[in-house]
């Protein structure tokens, strides 16, 4: 709700200012927006379809089973890969991470899951490539994955 209010609020202010200043330039903004939307729509549909598949198959229960309550390095690796692949809303992900932590998973495993979840987006990569290029996307997600593992390591040692 906050999200939608923020975006539409910003848009309303922007549009009013723009219309007062120049009708013509406002029309141009609409044309640019329409073109960008048409261009992005197909890759967006693909991403949404993949998101649905991963979330439909990798439900919170399945993830809990896969990560489990084990303490080994394998659990951390599995958690980081699951985190990188899935795209779970934070309202679902954090309670899940919290309950895994309480049921015996290590801090390292949980931080690997949370950090890769937010830093690496495999399912959104097709869209990122379309907008920002292959190289940027690979570098950002690849380095993000390494950074997430390092962060998990530090957190596991500190906490």
């Amino acid at each position: 709700m906050v999200t939608i209010a923020t975006i539409y609020g910003l848009l309303a202010v922007g549009l009013i200012v723009s219309l007062i200043k120049s009708r013509e330039k406002t029309m141009k903004a609409f044309r640019i927006a329409g073109k960008a939307f048409a261009k992005t729509a197909p890759s967006l549909l693909t991403v949404l379809g993949i998101v649905g598949l991963t979330l439909g198959i990798l439900t919170p229960e399945t993830i809990a089973k896969l990560v489990g309550a084990e303490a080994g390095i394998m659990a951390t690796l599995i958690a980081s890969i699951l985190g990188a692949i899935t795209l779970i809303p934070s309202l679902v992900a954090f309670p899940l991470a919290g309950s895994l932590l309480r049921s015996g998973a290590t801090v390292m495993t949980i931080s690997a899951f949370v950090t890769t979840l937010v830093m690496v987006g495999v399912v959104t990569a097709p869209m990122e490539i379309k907008e920002l290029g292959k190289k940027f996307t690979l570098l950002r997600n690849g380095l993000g994955f390494l950074a997430a593992l390092l962060i998990a390591l530090v957190m596991g040692v500190v906490l």
Binding site: I7, Y8, L10, L11, G14, L15, S18, K21, K25, T26, K28, A29, F30, R31, I32, A33, G34, A36, F37, T40
Partner: peptide
């Protein structure tokens, strides 16, 4: 609305 905001940024 996001694309429209981008359009506004692009033009203004």
């Amino acid at each position: 609305p996001v694309f429209l905001l981008m359009g506004l940024i692009e033009t203004w």
